[in-house]
């Protein structure tokens, strides 16, 4: 009997994505490397940041959105660098204008610049304002199951707990709380932040996460394009392992080769 390994697409706020790997565009050497890595990752959703335009410098300098075409990818503007709900909401509105009304955003409101840990009080306030203003909000948050549920209640379309600190590459530091979030969530749960290498991404997917968002793990690898491809396979492998439902753990051994018919029997 052939078993189907057909997976359902990731659906976020009614949008369907074939890939469950979402990638950022920061920290690359140049736009050429950015584009090559994202191509190798096969990601459909690509994040970017919103910043003041450098005025009076080189107006012909290349633009990220020329390298990462909005017609090929679903762009996910973030609110990185915002420390208050007000600034995050302003940034989302600027991003919506930048992308001609596209309303899917990644909300992150940070607590301090040393840990980049989310300020959940400001995040909750911003989420509520943005949802009421018609945004589809994918929200970066701590790995607190109660906060995750509160964000879901405020209408966020995806909850994205950190695996560990942004840019740390420390992987999933608290799988137990992540499991609690997964157990109770009714919207997609994606690990955002902390992924260091392929096994971290695979583990998140094996646990049942709906997707993984990463930037530094690819961009700061010595060979970003190769790591992007590794992450693609890790997310796919982890997802399939989750769907296949792993064997039970047991304390005793169990031989794979039959005892019967041994020549010494």
């Amino acid at each position: 009997m052939t078993q189907s390994i057909q997976d359902a697409p990731l659906i976020v706020a009614g949008r369907r994505f074939a890939s469950r790997l979402l990638v950022g565009t920061g920290k690359y050497r140049d736009f050429e490397e950015t584009a090559a890595a994202i191509d190798a990752s096969a990601a459909d959703v690509v994040t970017f940041a919103v910043r003041r335009t450098n005025l009076g410098q080189n107006p012909d300098e290349p633009n990220l959105l020329d390298a990462i075409s909005p017609s090929r990818y679903t762009l996910l503007p973030n609110t990185a660098g915002c420390y208050t709900a007000k600034d995050a909401v302003r940034t989302c509105k600027l991003a919506r204008e930048l992308l001609d009304g596209h309303n899917l955003v990644k909300l992150e409101v940070l607590g301090d610049d040393k840990t980049l840990y989310p300020n959940v009080v400001e995040t909750l306030a911003a989420a509520e304002t943005l949802v009421n203003d018609g945004f589809d909000v994918m929200v970066y948050t701590s790995d607190d199951p109660i906060v995750a549920k509160e964000l879901e209640r405020r209408g966020c379309c995806a909850v994205m707990p950190l695996g560990s600190l942004i840019g740390s590459g420390n992987g999933l530091l608290n799988p137990a709380t992540l499991a609690l979030i997964l157990e109770h969530a009714e919207v997609p749960v994606l690990v955002d932040a902390g992924i260091g290498t392929a096994s971290d991404a695979a583990l998140a997917m094996e646990m049942g996460c709906d997707g993984v968002l990463m930037n530094s793990a690819i961009a700061h690898a010595r060979h970003p394009v190769m790591m992007a491809h590794a992450m693609r396979k890790a997310v796919e492998a982890g997802r399939e392992a989750f769907l296949a439902e792993r064997m039970p753990r047991r304390q005793s051994a169990s031989p794979s080769s039959p005892f019967a018919g041994r020549i010494n029997g």
């Binding site: 920061g26 690359y28 910043r51 930048l98």
Partner: peptide, 25 residues
């Protein structure tokens, strides 16, 4: 909105922000 740039006149004391997309995670 872009559609209103031509008819929006700046006044003394206005605060203007012009932003674009850059790499980020």
């Amino acid at each position: 909105p872009r559609s209103l740039h031509a008819q929006t006149r700046l006044r003394d004391g206005d605060s203007v922000e012009i932003v674009h997309a850059i790499g980020g995670g």
